[in-house]
């Protein structure tokens, strides 16, 4: 393999990692509060609110049903307004974050549902405010499960970012697409695959490791 090819792959791998983790971060920034709100406004919960819950739920479902490849294109005007361009890593992070957020919101909601109701009741009986219930009871108790959700999300984002590569997002996906699909260079294509597989394995391993460390159940 030529030096320039190694450099290209290294750059691609770095771009994929940046896209995955940065959009994962922004995805959580939007998805986590949304998931918490989805849970807290559910029937029988502390902030029960039917209309509010249904509205968010519908928005989440709409965004979850848009195929990612279409979401990228559909969001181009918004992306351009936000980061000034519609190609490259920065531009890809916008639809990736928006694509991941509703997915994360549902995962968070499900993690919170698993927290035993008695704990919320005990906290209410001790005079905890809804906000205290969220950050002192719900999130710490659901942490192992939330970390598992984070691994699932990041792995999904690795796939999404590769998909974005096909429309100019950069990263390993774009290299795989150009050298594999367009040029049919088997060697480069397989190297890209191996790098992607390695990335997924590392994320899963780290996720499992951390989840286990914080789990005292």
């Amino acid at each position: 393999m030529s030096d320039s090819m190694i450099l290209l792959l290294a750059k691609g791998a770095w771009e994929t990692i940046v896209m995955t983790f940065v959009s994962g971060f922004f995805g959580f920034l939007i998805g986590l509060p949304t998931g918490v709100l989805l849970f807290m406004t559910r029937k029988g919960q502390v902030l029960e609110h039917k209309t509010f819950n249904h509205t968010i739920s519908i928005i989440v479902n709409i965004f979850r049903s848009i195929p990612f490849i279409i979401l990228i294109v559909w969001m181009i005007p918004f992306t351009r307004a936000l980061v000034g361009t519609s190609i490259g890593v920065e531009a890809a992070i916008v639809p990736l974050s928006i694509g991941a957020a509703p997915f994360i919101a549902r995962l968070i909601e499900n993690s919170l549902i698993e927290v035993p109701g008695g704990l919320i009741e005990a906290a209410r009986a001790m005079g905890a405010t809804p906000f205290q219930i969220v950050y002192k009871v719900l999130l710490p108790e659901a942490l192992p499960s939330i970390i598992n959700s984070a691994s699932v999300t990041l792995i999904t984002l690795v796939g999404y970012s590769a998909m974005g590569g096909a429309v100019g997002a950069g990263g390993l996906g774009q290299i795989g697409y150009q050298y594999g699909y367009v040029g049919y260079d088997v060697f480069v294509m397989n190297t890209v695959l191996i790098l992607l597989i390695a990335l997924v394995f590392i994320i899963q391993f780290l996720g499992d490791f951390i989840a286990k460390r914080v789990d005292h159940r």
Binding site: G118, L119, E121, A125, P140, H216, R217
Partner: peptide, 14 residues
């Protein structure tokens, strides 16, 4: 107003 429960309801993360 203190309260204790049948299933204790302790926080497992603490």
């Amino acid at each position: 107003i203190g309260m204790i429960f049948q299933h204790f309801n302790l926080l497992s993360s603490r």
